[in-house]
Each structure stands twice: as structure tokens, then as C-alpha cells.
């Protein structure tokens, strides 16, 4: 028997939320940027700890501040992926505030932070930027190369079901 869980991807516009989902669900990447209007829903089945889990993934249109996103899209989520673009400081400058907002809205849902587009910088540059972000766990991802994409979703699913 499979269990279904709702996962939402949030963050500023253009940080690569849709591309991460595309890479995770369809193993594809496109350089063409199409802004998400409202919300887009995708689905992926995976096995975590011997359990069949169906992830219903809500790709929510990017906003500079999460309180501008309709709460009804976020409510009922079992897990959150907060995505920022490592090459654009404006997308992670108020990271603490945004993550706190999400934690307040979904107190029982695990939240994972993804630093996306790491393929555009050297590993040293990435480390240096992440060093300046005072967060315990930030996962480096690249929707383009697929780096850590599957792992990020798997880790979140594990946190949800455990």
C-alpha cells in the first residue's frame, strides 16, 4: 500500500523550483525560463525505508516573500523544500525570516533548504557563500546537472515518513 504526501516547493521566482521538479520527476532540464503562474502539480512515486510513498509535488509560483503566497496552497503540506539561487544574494538574504514564516505556518512539516544552481559557481565559491549563511543544513543542488536533486527529495520524504 502506498501513502500519499504533499510536498511544496517555495522560494523567490527564478530560483529553479520548476527545474528541480522537472529533473526529479522527468530527469530533464531546459534552459528556457517559463515563469510558473499560480501553481503546478506533479507526482512521483518512490520507495523510502521499504515504504511506497507517492509525492504530490506543488510547484508554487515564486514570490520574494512567502507571506504573499496564498496560504491555501501551502496548508496541509507534509514537507517543504525552500529553494534559493546561490548566485543571487537577494534570494537568500532574508532566508531566516522566510523559513521562520514557513515553520509558523506548518509547524509539523520538515523543511529543507536547497541552494540551487551550484553548477554556475566553483565548489569553493559555493562553500564560501554557504559559510556566510548561518543555517545548519543547506543542501547544494543543481537542477541542470541533477546534483543532489533526487537525494534532496528522498531526504525530505524520509523526514516526512519517519
Amino acid at each position: 500500500m502506498s501513502i500519499s504526501k504533499k510536498v511544496i516547493l517555495v522560494g523567490h521566482f527564478g530560483v529553479g523550483k520548476t527545474s528541480l521538479i522537472r529533473q526529479f520527476v522527468h530527469q530533464k532540464f531546459s534552459d528556457e525560463y517559463l515563469t510558473t503562474i499560480g501553481v503546478k502539480i506533479d507526482k512521483k512515486e518512490l520507495q523510502v525505508d521499504g515504504m511506497d510513498v507517492t509525492l504530490i509535488i506543488w510547484d508554487i509560483a515564486g514570490e520574494t516573500e512567502q507571506n504573499k503566497v496564498p496560504a491555501s496552497y501551502q496548508l496541509g503540506a507534509h514537507g517543504v523544500l525552500y529553494v534559493f539561487d546561490i548566485t543571487r544574494p537577494s534570494t537568500y538574504q532574508n532566508l531566516h525570516e522566510q523559513v521562520n514564516h514557513m515553520q509558523g505556518l506548518l509547524p509539523n512539516a520538515p523543511i529543507q533548504i536547497l541552494a540551487n544552481k551550484t553548477d554556475l559557481l566553483t565548489p569553493e565559491e559555493c562553500e564560501s557563500i554557504l559559510g556566510g549563511i548561518d543555517f545548519q543544513e543547506v543542501h547544494q543542488t543543481s537542477a541542470k546537472t541533477g546534483l543532489n536533486v533526487e537525494e534532496a527529495f528522498r531526504l525530505l520524504t524520509k523526514a516526512i515518513v519517519s
Binding site: 507517492t54 504530490i56 506543488w58 496548508l75 496541509g76 503540506a77 507534509h78
Partner: peptide, 25 residues
């Protein structure tokens, strides 16, 4: 389900679409 949009059950005469995604949308 109201908030999460997860499918609790369905009935279809055609079975042509992914019902989980329809429920979400």
C-alpha cells in the same frame, strides 16, 4: 482532503487522467 489536496477516493468511468494530479489541481 481539503487542505492537502490529497485524493481520499475516486470513481471514474474512463480512467484517463492521473487522479492524484487532478485532485491537486
Amino acid at each position: 482532503e481539503k487542505n492537502s489536496g490529497l485524493l481520499m477516493g475516486s470513481f471514474s468511468k474512463n480512467q484517463t487522467v492521473d487522479q492524484d494530479m487532478i485532485a491537486g489541481m
